[in-house]
């Protein structure tokens, strides 16, 4: 088991390296391929009326004259040992883990990310709980009542849930529940959990539900399929033959068997969402990681983009690892290997 974890961690590091390198390459190599020079790159980050000297100076400061692998190396080194940035007037030290400074406003990226992480985390975790409970419950009921009106209705709604984009459902629900009925908070506000849990939940309720609706649809379908399969297993027949109540058969024997594949997807989804729920955050104007990524992209602000990417990749890799370990907890057959 230990060797297994070590092997997985090693693979995770390699993966993070690849992801960051590819992101870096896309950001820098692509403009180069269409003929951009360090100066033209740098003009984006200086004022409109900048002199050629200023542009050169900026390009120099941002390291654009270095070969790309040197640039990448400088960036990557900062994560482990920190980095120093000169402003012309002085040098500022950015402690490890340093994800660089924004090209635009010279703010260090890492503290920004940490500021925004709670927002995204609150959104993701809250929605995940909702969609897991909702999706599994609906899926289980659908499977047990296969072919009934309930089943068909649930599956139709879930199809709609999967198909409708968040900027549609999000804005629609905002206009109905917040602006129309006034039941929920209007978007854009976030109160930290520790400050006021009630406010925290009140503000996030609508984004949670909107986001959960999107995912729960998929979970309902997966659970339904898994339950239909599991409830036909021989061990379910054995459980019934023992004289267990139907409820025990379904929950203890059926769901336990059907949930394993759901666990995998759940881990991946949560991991992915922790890297920022771009559409939801935009629709509800939440200042989370997704919003931060959008800012970075629209402003050609590489360090921001790299920061979010690396954080998102980290969460996905971490989630994968956790899922695999959970597998061993859930399924004793995996433990043996």
């Amino acid at each position: 088991m230990i060797t297994y974890i070590i092997r997985r961690l090693f693979a995770a590091i390699v993966l993070l390296f690849v992801v960051s390198a590819v992101t870096f390459a896309i950001f820098f190599l692509m403009p180069k391929l269409v003929g951009a020079s360090p100066e033209t790159l740098a003009t984006r980050y200086v004022g409109r009326a900048a002199t050629a000297d200023t542009v050169r100076e900026t390009a120099e400061r941002l390291g654009f004259y270095d070969p790309i692998y040197v640039q990448y190396w400088d960036w990557a080194k900062g994560i482990f040992v920190g980095a120093d940035y000169s402003y012309g007037t002085g040098v500022e030290h950015c402690p490890a883990p340093c994800l660089g400074y924004s090209f635009r406003n010279n703010q260090p990226v890492f503290p920004d990310l940490m500021d925004r992480l709670p927002v995204t985390m609150s959104l993701a975790v809250g929605a995940a709980v909702l969609w897991l409970l909702g999706g599994v419950a609906v899926g289980t009921l659908s499977a047990l009542r296969k072919g009934t009106i309930f089943d068909r209705a649930a599956m139709s709604i879930s199809l709609a849930g999967v198909s409708l984009p968040i900027f549609f459902t999000g804005l629609l629900s905002l206009s109905i529940f917040s602006y129309g009925l006034g039941w929920t908070a209007v978007g854009g506000s976030y109160v930290p959990f520790l400050d006021n849990p009630g406010e925290w939940a009140y503000n996030l309720l609508l984004p949670w539900i909107t986001l959960a609706l999107l995912f729960s649809a998929q979970y309902a379908r997966l659970t339904r399929a898994g339950m239909l399969e599991t409830m036909n297993e021989d061990f379910i027949r054995t459980a019934r033959a023992k004289g267990l109540t139907e409820r025990t058969v379904v929950v203890r024997h059926g769901l336990r068997g059907a949930l394993t594949p759901i666990l995998t997807i759940f881990g991946l989804d949560v991991g992915l969402l922790l890297g920022g729920a771009i559409l939801t955050e935009s629709a509800f104007s939440l200042q989370g990681l997704g919003k931060y990524a959008i800012d970075g992209i629209t402003n050609y602000d590489l360090p921001k983009v790299m920061g979010v990417t690396i954080l998102a990749a980290f969460f996905v890799v971490l989630a994968n690892l956790v899922v695999d370990l959970l597998y061993a907890v859930v399924d004793p057959r995996v433990r043996a290997k």
């Binding site: 297993e233 054995t238 033959a241 023992k242 024997h253 399924d331």
Partner: peptide, 18 residues
């Protein structure tokens, strides 16, 4: 299970793996 009980063909699939 109490007054009537049953044994099945394939004991591997008839027992819950977890």
């Amino acid at each position: 299970g109490k007054r009537m009980a049953m044994i099945f063909q394939d004991p591997l699939s008839a027992m819950h793996p977890f």
